[in-house]
Amino acid sequence: MLDNYFPILVFVLVGLAFGCVPILLGWLIAPNRPDSEKLSAFECGFAPFEDARMKFDVRYYLIAILFILFDLEIAFLFPWAAIFKEIVNTEAVKMFGFVEMFVFIGILVVGYVYAWAKGALDWE
């Protein structure tokens, strides 16, 4: 089975080389003679006025956390889809796999409706 993933390994290695080799080459063979004039900001550049870290609106985190939670929900859907045909008709219960997943999604829809009704998805 792992043989199927060999092209992906090659792809990862090529990607790494694509990112690292130009930087390494530049570091190795480019001449490096810095002076204060070269390193100072010029033309449109200017020295920063303040620190980049600042107080940030908490609503960005709320949206991000909601995204992660529904992302997890999606992660549960993939293996379910892979064996859907097998578990949709088990010997014991008809439509078991189908109902099971819809109970799962239904519970999460409660959270979605709650977030929507509370206005967590409104921006302005």
Partner: peptide
């Protein structure tokens, strides 16, 4: 989705709790 169906549904309740907690806190 067969042997562990019940813990699987519990997982969705935990996600629901997380959604409500995130909305309430932020």
């Amino acid at each position: 989705y067969t042997d562990y169906a019940y813990p699987f549904e519990i997982a969705s309740v935990i996600l629901l709790v997380a959604i409500i907690a995130a909305v309430m806190l932020t």
